[in-house]
Computed example of a mutant assay.
Amino acid sequence: MQVFLKKSFFVFFVTFLAAASSKGQQLIALYPGKVPNQRAAAGAETKQPRLTAYFPAKESATGVAVIVCPGGGYRSLVVKREGTDVAEALNKMGIAAFVLEYRLPSEATMMDKTIGPLQDAQQAIKMVRQKAAAWNIDPNKIGILGFSAGGHLASTAGTHFQHAQIENKENISLRPDFMVLVYPVISFEEGLAHAGSRESLVGKAPSKEQIRLYSNEQQVTAQTPPTFLIHAGDDSKVPVQNSLRFYEALQKNGVPAELHLYPKGEHGFSLGAPIDNWLERCRYWMVASGWIK
């Protein structure tokens, strides 16, 4: 009986590994050693940041990679609906996807909570670019996609890349090659900001300098990556003006951008379709932009 159970467990284990392997998923610690900016606090949960890699079938791989940043108001992470589901959809398009479970801002666990999420986004870009050859990825086709507060993080990565918040002795580019921003938090200005996201990242009484620094429509330059934007006009959580202002700033600086606005869809529709399949429109944009042949 004992031998039978051992054999059964072995068969189950091998089957489990085969299934995991067939999906092309890998769970990866974001930092090989000590996590930067981390504070050891008694009783405080210190969740380690990580990437879950989803690889497409080799025969359909385009060489494009996208780092996916789930939303959650910088207070939680909507990992399945704005992470896993999206990664699997990207795989069907031949795109490698990396779901980023970034650290949530916390004074208890971080010495400077305002840079914690950005450190993780920069480290994710660095890691994927470093391992591009091993993962069958073109190092010049690495984008970042973010939803809601994850869109704020993605747009921060795309507008603050010249200031490394992580160790980067190798001088690897931390600039995403393109951005996809879905109902993103962009601005921390009064009247535009999602109050919860702003409070979580910069506190209840941020300085004018902090508000300006993390109002990413004010940080756009000619070097900001090309951007694809999606938003619903009836979004009651994150005003549509966040995407409009960012698009205007991109246009002003000569950055290629495409904006799709839907009259209805509210907030958090993820892969749901207010009118059509926005991810398919995004694929058309990637083809037209030369990211996908």
Score class of each variant (00 low, 15 high):
P56K: 11
L17M: 13
G146M: 10
A61D: 10
L250I: 05
T159M: 05
S8N: 07
A121Q: 02
L192H: 11
T52A: 05
G83C: 08
Q210R: 00
P105M: 02
M111N: 14
K264Q: 13
K169Y: 01
L27Q: 12
A53W: 06
G272H: 11
P56M: 07
N171P: 00
Q122T: 05
Y102A: 03
G24Q: 04
D138P: 07
K92R: 15
A124T: 00
R283D: 08
V78W: 03
T224D: 03
P105E: 02
N168C: 09
G203T: 07
A44M: 04
A195R: 13
R50T: 07
S22A: 15
R81K: 14
G268D: 07
Q241I: 03
Y214E: 01
K58I: 04
R198P: 00
I28W: 03
M179P: 06
A42N: 11
H163T: 15
I142N: 02
E199G: 12
D138M: 04
E209Y: 02
A29H: 12
N253C: 07
M127G: 01
D85T: 10
Q218E: 13
L51A: 03
G146Y: 03
G24H: 05
Q38H: 02
M111S: 11
G33Q: 10
D138S: 14
I172N: 00
T159S: 08
